[in-house]
Structure formats: structure tokens, C-alpha cells
Deep mutational scan, measured.
Amino acid sequence: VKVFRALYTFEPRTPDELYFEEGDIIYITDMSDTNWWKGTSKGRTGLIPSNYVAEQ
């Protein structure tokens, strides 16, 4: 598990995607895809765009 911080707010387009706000901490559990990672924030899990976060 790696810890990342959201650089921007992300509004999901599908139920599989995770909503998060700029500054949120996201725990990444799967980075197997280059563009979409699986992450958890505020008790919810979903896909996030990798270019919206920076490693802490």
C-alpha cells in the first residue's frame, strides 16, 4: 500500500470510480494499470486517475 495526496478534486463518471477532493489522502492498493489505480479514501474504495495524485 502506498500513500498519495489528491492534487485535484475528482468527480466519478462511473460507479467504479472514487470521488475525492483536493488534499485528500488516498491509500493505493493496485497500480497494475498505468492510468487508473485502485485506492481507498474516507472508507470508500474505487478507481482513481493516476495523474490526479502525488506520492507522499
Rank of each mutant, 00 (worst) to 15 (best):
Gly23Phe: 04
Tyr19His: 09
Val3Arg: 11
Ile25Cys: 09
Gly46Met: 02
Asp16Lys: 11
Arg5Asp: 01
Lys2His: 11
Ile48Thr: 02
Glu22Gln: 13
Pro15Ile: 11
Gly46Ser: 00
Pro49Arg: 07
Glu17Thr: 04
Val53Tyr: 02
Thr40Phe: 15
Ser50Ala: 14
Thr40Ala: 08
Ile25Lys: 04
Lys2Pro: 07
Asp33Phe: 04
Asp30Pro: 03
Tyr52Trp: 07
Glu21Thr: 08
Phe4Lys: 01
Ser32His: 09
Thr45Ala: 11
Ser32Met: 08
Asp33Leu: 08
Ile25His: 05
Arg5Trp: 10
Ala54Cys: 13
Gly23Val: 02
Trp36Gln: 03
Arg44Lys: 13
Gly43Gln: 04
Thr29His: 14
Gly43Pro: 01
Tyr8Leu: 10
Glu21Cys: 08
Ala54Lys: 13
Arg13Ile: 08
Glu21Leu: 09
Arg5Gly: 02
Arg44Pro: 02
Phe10Thr: 07
Ala6Met: 02
Pro49Ala: 05
Val53Asn: 01
Trp36Asp: 01
Phe10Ala: 11
Phe10Ser: 13
Tyr19Arg: 13
Glu17Phe: 11
Gly39Thr: 02
Trp36Ala: 03
Lys38Leu: 15
Gly23Glu: 03
Glu22Trp: 06
Ala54Tyr: 12
Ile25Gly: 01
Asn51Met: 11
Ser32Trp: 06
Asp33Ile: 05
Met31Phe: 09
Glu55Trp: 11
Asn51Val: 09
Leu7Ile: 11
Met31Ser: 08
Ser41Arg: 15
Glu11Gly: 05
Glu17Ile: 04
Leu18Pro: 00
Arg5Ala: 06
Val1Gln: 11
Gly23Arg: 03
Pro15Lys: 12
Asn35His: 15
Asp24Cys: 06
Asn35Leu: 15
Trp36Thr: 05
Thr9Ile: 04
Asn51Gly: 12
Gly43Thr: 05
Leu7Asn: 03
Arg5Gln: 09
Leu47Met: 12
Asp33Asn: 11
Tyr52Lys: 05
Gly43Ser: 05
Thr9Val: 04
Ile28Ser: 00
Lys38Thr: 14
Thr34Glu: 14
Asp16Ser: 11
Asp24Ile: 04
Met31Pro: 04
Val53Ser: 01
Trp37Asn: 00
Phe4Cys: 09
Lys38Gln: 11
Trp36Val: 05
Arg44Asn: 09
Met31Glu: 04
Glu11Phe: 15
Glu21Lys: 10
Val3Ala: 11
Asp30Thr: 03
Leu47Phe: 12
Thr45Gly: 07
Ser50Glu: 03
Trp37Tyr: 13
Ile48His: 00
Leu18Asp: 01
Gly43Ile: 02
Gly39Met: 02
Pro15Met: 09
Thr9Cys: 08
Gly46Asn: 01
Gln56Tyr: 15
Thr9Phe: 05
Pro12Asn: 06
Thr9Arg: 11
Phe10Cys: 04
Tyr52Phe: 13
Tyr19Ala: 14
Ser41Cys: 15
Thr40Trp: 15
Gly39Trp: 03
Glu22Gly: 06
Leu18Trp: 01
Glu22His: 07
Lys2Gln: 09
Asp33Glu: 07
Lys38Asn: 07
Ser50Tyr: 06
Tyr27Pro: 00
Asn51Gln: 11
Asn51Cys: 15
Lys2Asp: 03
Glu55Lys: 09
Gly23Ala: 03
Tyr8Gln: 10
Asp24Arg: 01
Ile25Ser: 05
Leu47Val: 07
Asp16His: 12
Met31Asn: 07
Tyr27Ala: 06
Ala6Thr: 01
Lys38Ile: 15
Asp24Gly: 02
Phe20Pro: 00
Leu47Trp: 14
Val1Met: 13
Arg44Gln: 09
Val53Glu: 02
Gly39Lys: 01
Thr14Lys: 12
Gln56Pro: 10
Val1Phe: 14
Glu55Arg: 09
Leu47Ile: 09
Pro49Gly: 03
Ala54Ser: 13
Ile48Asn: 00
Trp37Gln: 00
Thr14Met: 10
Arg5Tyr: 15
Val3Pro: 08
Gly46Leu: 02
Arg44Cys: 07
Phe20Leu: 07
Gly39Glu: 01
Gly23Cys: 07
Thr45Asn: 09
Trp36Lys: 03
Arg44Gly: 08
Gln56Asn: 12
Pro15Arg: 10
Glu21Gln: 12
Ile28Thr: 00
Ser41Lys: 05
Tyr19Val: 04
Gly46Lys: 01
Ser32Ala: 09
Asp30Ser: 06
Phe20Cys: 04
Ile26Phe: 03
Thr29Glu: 09
Tyr27Lys: 05
Asp30Cys: 06
Arg44Ser: 07
Glu21Gly: 05
Pro12Lys: 03
Ser41Ile: 14
Ile28Gly: 00
Arg13Ser: 13
Thr14Phe: 12
Glu21Tyr: 06
Asp30Met: 06
Ser32Phe: 07
Asp33Gly: 09
Leu7Ala: 03
Lys2Gly: 09
Ile48Ser: 02
Gly23Thr: 02
Leu7Thr: 04
Ala6Lys: 01
Ser50Trp: 07
Ile26Trp: 01
Trp37Asp: 00
Glu17Trp: 07
Pro15Asn: 10
Thr34Gly: 13
Phe4Tyr: 14
Leu18Thr: 01
Ile25Tyr: 10
Ala6Tyr: 03
Phe10Ile: 04
Phe20Ser: 01
Tyr52Asn: 02
Thr29Ala: 06
Lys38Ser: 09
Met31Thr: 10
Ser50Asp: 03
Glu55Ser: 09
Asn35Val: 14
Val1Cys: 15
Pro49Gln: 05
Leu47His: 04
Gly23Tyr: 04
Glu17Val: 04
Asp24Gln: 08
Leu18Gly: 00
Glu17Asn: 03
Ile28Gln: 00
Ile26Tyr: 01
Leu7Val: 07
Asn35Ser: 12
Tyr8Ala: 11
Gly23Ile: 03
Thr29Phe: 15
Asp16Pro: 04
Asp24Ala: 07
Thr40Asp: 06
Asp30Trp: 04
Pro15Leu: 11
Thr14Leu: 10
Val53Asp: 02
Phe4Ser: 02
Thr34Ala: 15
Asn35Trp: 14
Tyr19Trp: 10
Ala54Met: 14
Gly39Ser: 01
Glu17Tyr: 12
Pro15Glu: 13
Asp24Ser: 05
Ile26Ala: 00
Ser41Leu: 15
Leu18Phe: 03
Ile25Asp: 06
Ile26Thr: 07
Ser32Thr: 14
Ala6Val: 03
Trp36Arg: 05
Lys42Phe: 08
Thr29Trp: 15
Thr14Tyr: 12
Arg13Gln: 13
Leu47Thr: 06
Met31Ile: 06
Arg5Met: 12
Pro12Leu: 05
Ala54Ile: 15
Asn35Ile: 14
Ser50Arg: 12
Phe4Met: 11
Gly39Arg: 01
Asp24Lys: 00
Met31Ala: 07
Asp30Val: 04
Ala6Pro: 01
Trp37Leu: 05
Tyr19Gly: 15
Thr14Trp: 11
Gly39Pro: 00
Gly39Tyr: 02
Thr14Cys: 14
Val53Cys: 03
Thr9Gly: 08
Lys42Glu: 08
Pro15Phe: 08
Ser41Asn: 12
Ser41Pro: 01
Ala54Gln: 13
Arg5Pro: 00
Phe10Met: 05
Ile26His: 00
Ile26Leu: 13
Gln56Leu: 15
Ile48Trp: 03
Tyr27Gln: 07
Asp16Tyr: 13
Ile28Pro: 00
Glu55Leu: 13
Gly46Val: 02
Leu7Phe: 03
Glu22Ala: 15
Ile26Val: 08
Arg5Ser: 05
Ser50Thr: 07
Asp24His: 02
Asn35Arg: 13
Asp24Pro: 01
Tyr8Phe: 12
Thr29Tyr: 15
Gly46Ala: 02
Ile48Gly: 01
Ala6Phe: 02
Pro12Gly: 07
Lys42Gln: 13
Tyr19Leu: 05
Pro49Asn: 07
Lys42Ala: 12
Thr40Met: 14
Thr45Leu: 07
Asn51Ile: 09
Tyr19Ile: 03
Ser32Gly: 08
Asp33Trp: 04
Tyr52Arg: 04
Arg5Thr: 11
Gly43Arg: 03
Arg5Glu: 06
Ser41Glu: 02
Leu7Trp: 03
Asp30Tyr: 04
Asp24Trp: 14
Ser50Leu: 03
Asn35Asp: 13
Thr45Ile: 10
Glu22Pro: 06
Arg13Gly: 10
Gly46Trp: 03
Ser41Trp: 05
Trp37Gly: 01
Thr29Val: 11
Gln56Arg: 09
Tyr27Leu: 12
Trp36Pro: 00
Arg13Lys: 12
Thr40His: 14
